[in-house]
């Protein structure tokens, strides 16, 4: 039996599948609790439904992208482990990098099919350990941290709201700017300083998605098609990705 066959065996699927199933149950429990709490607090169920629908449509395309990450890693780590890692805790950009770094440390390469039964548990453990700190910090400090922020806010404004919303929106603007800045910088200097020979596909994709979003917003705000809001991000992403296919790079 080859290494890959062993990594794709029923036993490994069972171990990984059980953990994925556990996390799915946790998600359902949190969801039901939040829904009930929302109702008990007098929140409009239509708005809660809207949040759920929009989040579901929003998540489909990025999830397909994550599935590709599973495919990419399955050639060396088998299917069940990348499936588990990318369903739970993992992140697309993180898993590939750490898997490669971990493989280097045990003296093999992921790309050349050198995986051994002895190397796999070491790589898998390192992948687990490197990214678990967010969960550990959350377990230890989440409550204290949020309480402190809430107290600070109440002291300053006497109620919720205030600068908090603006700070969150600003943080998000900063996040988007970092990514778009990297695409522009990549195009200008990606293949040599000021060579303008880097990839311009991400820029076209950003522009197409932003333009599509502008159209969705126009129809939603000016033409009374508010239902479009639920699908606007997913629709804009699809148009952006379509632009990448048309460019063909």
């Amino acid at each position: 039996m080859s290494v890959l066959e062993q990594l794709n065996s029923g036993g490994v699927y069972l171990i990984c599948g059980s953990i994925v199933a556990f996390i799915a149950v946790v998600c359902v429990i949190f969801m039901v609790r939040a829904w009930r709490a929302g109702k008990a607090l007098g929140m409009d169920t239509t708005r809660m439904k809207r949040a759920v629908t929009a989040s579901a449509t929003f998540s489909v395309l990025p999830s397909v992208g994550i599935l590709l990450g599973v495919l990419a890693l399955s050639g060396s780590l088998g299917v069940p482990w990348p499936w588990l890692r990318l369903s739970v805790i993992g992140a697309l950009h993180y898993e590939t990098q750490v898997a490669h770094a971990a493989a280097e440390q045990v003296g093999i390469s992921l790309s050349s099919g050198q995986m051994t039964v002895q190397a796999f548990p070491t790589i898998a453990l390192l992948m687990s350990i490197c990214i678990m700190w967010g969960m550990i910090l959350s377990t230890m400090f989440n409550r204290r941290y949020l309480n402190r922020l809430q107290q600070g806010k109440t002291r300053k404004t006497g109620k919720g709201g205030g600068f908090g919303d603006k700070a969150m929106a600003a943080m998000f603007i900063g996040m988007v700017s970092a990514y778009i800045g990297s695409y522009v910088g990549g195009f200008i200097s990606g293949n040599g300083l000021f060579s303008f020979k880097g990839s311009w596909t991400p820029l076209v994709v950003v522009a197409a998605a932003a333009l599509a979003m502008a159209m969705f917003t126009y129809f939603s705000e000016k033409k009374g098609k508010e239902w479009l809001d639920n699908f606007s991000v997913a629709g804009s992403m699809l148009i952006g990705m379509l632009a990448a296919v048309l460019i063909g790079q």
Binding site: V28, A34, S63, I66, L67, G160, G164
Partner: peptide, 27 residues
């Protein structure tokens, strides 16, 4: 609004839905 009960409920619903969609798509 950030820091409100409503935000707490909406964020939890959103993250739970998103995670479930990923789990289903990947499965």
């Amino acid at each position: 609004k950030s820091g409100t009960a409503e935000n707490e409920v909406i964020a939890t619903l959103s993250i739970a839905t998103s995670a479930l969609v990923t789990i289903v798509v990947l499965a």
